[in-house]
Write a protein that binds this DNA or RNA. Structure first.
Length: 573
RNA sequence: CGGGGUGUAGCCCAGAUGGUAGGGCGCUUGCUUCGGGAGCAAGAGGUCGCACGUUCAACUCGUGUCACUCCGACCA
């Protein structure tokens, strides 16, 4: 509906903050009558929220269409067989909601649609003539998150724009991937979030090699990012790397020292009065599918990045549970004299070339000092599994790396032939040879974007919607509604403006304070205030939600003024 | 999955030692107000999350359970 009377609008505003909401976006979306929670991580949208979401969806459609995307719709409920084809039915964890239908068939709720997109197109795109192509949909996803939180930021059921491109060659995928990156930046600019940045990311369960995440930097975020302010290096902490900084320590003679009860790095370092970076830490992990513990040696001041370790060993890893018998002297595990048959070992590259380190002696209450990695552990292989620390040197330019928080609002992946091979999708190339196409996939979460917009654009009173996504463009308030002329003027403006714009009019006859407070919560960019005192002079007030504009104009100037202000506001993005 | 917190009207909350539920906001009606969440008056609205137990009597005590929430683990 183009115009709406507030007396009929479903979605009551709350004066007080609902108790369960802590994030700004969650609070305003509840208070403004945009969303209502149905269950943990599951929400319904009321008209204002639905309208914002539809505005975003329209922009997504336009941008996908502009890239020759073909809109499709794939199912939410899929048979397990489809996911067994790709192998993910068994590898993805409990976030995949599985169920049985009445005939006992294993079914699942789609959390992403790579399998469905291959299944859909493998019978259609059998000739090189069709390539490259991209399909996309705006569809519900369900992920049974172990812990949803933060209102619309992290939910279980959500709407997502997901696109899948198929190419005859890696080169063509890379070209398209690059174009998509440009499109993504334009999308975020158009919805009013030009500050979204892309960072290199882990590919996780999606598989593939290259991936980027689109992040809104905000303290409300739950992802950690490493950013170099000097050269612009940006990466998710999961994959971030920093320059190696090897100490200049001299080679020393090895000797055992008595260290009673010094089981952790902090107490050992203070007991021996050395820097934590002089210690050789042993982090013990269990690896899915392996009986033996995995011991990771790393410099004492660094942490193991489990995402990197997972990639390195190619399986799920988790910290070794203390109570499980490992045959190790936990707290005193060292690289020298380790029972090699009983454990797997991995060395982090932070140890490369280090001398005069203190490490466990594999005996209770004993450590060994003077360990020299080049001398005592010749020929070992190093892996990169350390978590980058804030303040570390940038590997690209040597600058000082900063740690920031961000919310992921979109991502793009180069999947390669991960799915087309396992699911046997082929096409005939120009030589008539059967080949597997390579794939990319590109997601943007609509609901999360709504929440991010509020996080990024609000004041103390409510959201300030960018024109492109605002639920309405014009909000008419009528003060002193019972004064005949006020109602008449408001009504005629409502009708006139309603021809060109989406207009919401407050016809409830309440006091000015209530009308203004509710208008602030609804965040409509342009407000037209019809009041007795102005109408008597043939004038009305026009103000913007961001409070930058506030002027009184002649009634016959309203349409022109509104048009001008909306144009000006739109031009910001 | 571990640890904490909370469930009382649409929203925010109060209900000492057990005695059958209350305030504010919102809602309805009337009158007065009317440029930043008005005033008076009269109303409507609750199986006190659920189950079992203790008791003459349970919102209150006990056990269990469910839900929501925060922190951690986990997570395209």
């Amino acid at each position: 509906m183009r115009t709406m009377l507030m007396s009929r609008l479903l979605g009551e505003r709350y004066r007080e903050n609902p108790g369960e909401a802590s994030l700004v976006s969650h609070r305003f979306l509840l208070r403004g009558g945009y969303v209502r929670q149905v269950a943990n991580g599951i929400y319904s949208l009321l008209p204002p929220g639905r309208r914002v979401a539809m505005k975003i969806e329209r922009i997504l459609r336009e941008e996908m269409d502009a890239m020759d995307g073909q809109e499709v719709l794939m199912p939410v409920v899929m048979p397990a067989e489809l996911w067994k084809e790709s192998g993910r039915f068994d590898t993805v964890g409990d976030e995949l909601l599985r169920m049985k239908d009445r005939t006992g068939h294993d079914m699942l709720l789609g959390m992403t649609h790579e399998e469905a997109s291959v299944q859909l197109t493998r019978g259609e795109a059998v000739s090189h003539v069709k390539y490259p192509f991209m399909i996309y949909q705006i569809q519900t996803k369900f992920r049974d998150e172990p812990r949803s939180r933060g209102g619309l930021i992290r939910v279980r059921e959500f709407t997502m724009k997901d696109a899948y491109s198929f190419h005859a060659s890696i080169e063509d995928l890379e070209r398209h991937y690059g174009e998509m990156a440009v499109t993504y930046h334009r999308i975020f600019k158009r919805v009013g979030l030009p500050q979204v940045i892309s960072v290199g990311s882990d590919t996780g369960m999606m598989g593939g090699k290259v991936a980027h995440e689109y992040m809104l930097l905000t303290e409300a975020g739950e992802d950690s990012l490493i950013i170099c302010p000097d050269c612009g290096y940006k990466a998710n902490l999961e994959v971030a790397v920093s320059a190696r900084d090897c100490s200049e320590a001299e080679e020393e003679t090895r000797a055992d020292v008595h260290t009673p009860g010094m089981k952790d790095i902090a107490s050992l370092a203070s007991f021996l009065d050395v820097e934590e970076s002089r210690l050789m830490k042993a982090a013990v992990f269990s690896v899915e599918g392996r009986v033996k513990p995995l011991v990771v040696f790393i410099r004492g001041d660094l942490q193991v990045n489990e995402a990197k370790l997972r990639q390195e060993v190619g399986a799920e890893v988790s910290p070794w549970a203390d109570e499980v018998e490992s045959g190790l002297n936990l707290g005193f595990v060292g690289a020298l004299g380790l029972p090699e048959a009983a454990v797997d070992v991995l060395y982090d590259s932070s140890l490369e070339g280090e001398r005069n380190l203190v490490g466990g002696a594999n005996r209770p209450d004993t450590h060994t000092k003077g360990i020299s990695v080049p001398r005592d552990l010749p020929g070992i292989q190093f892996s990169h599994v350390a978590k980058v620390k804030e303040g570390a040197r940038c590997a690209e330019c040597g600058g000082t790396l900063a740690l920031r928080r961000g919310i992921e609002v979109g991502n793009i992946f180069q999947l390669g032939s991960r799915y087309t091979e396992s699911m046997n999708m082929t096409f005939a190339d120009t030589e008539g040879q059967r080949r597997n196409p390579v794939m990319g996939c590109y997601g943007i979460g609509v609901g999360r974007l709504v929440a991010c917009l509020v996080e990024a654009c609000h004041d103390d009173f409510g959201p300030i919607w960018p024109v492109s996504v605002a639920p309405w463009q014009v909000h008419i308030c009528q003060l002193n509604q019972d004064v005949g002329v006020v109602g008449e003027i408001a009504r005629s403006l409502y009708e006139k403006l309603g021809v060109r714009y989406e207009v919401l009019m407050d016809d409830r006859g309440t006091t000015a304070g209530i009308q203004f407070a509710d208008a602030d919560l609804l965040g409509v960019p342009v407000r037209v205030i019809v009041s007795k005192r102005n109408v008597e002079k043939g004038e009305v007030e026009i103000a913007t939600r961001d409070k930058r504009v506030r002027k009184v104009v002649q009634i016959d100037q309203v349409e022109a003024e509104v048009a001008g202000i909306l144009q000006e506001l739109s031009a910001r993005y």
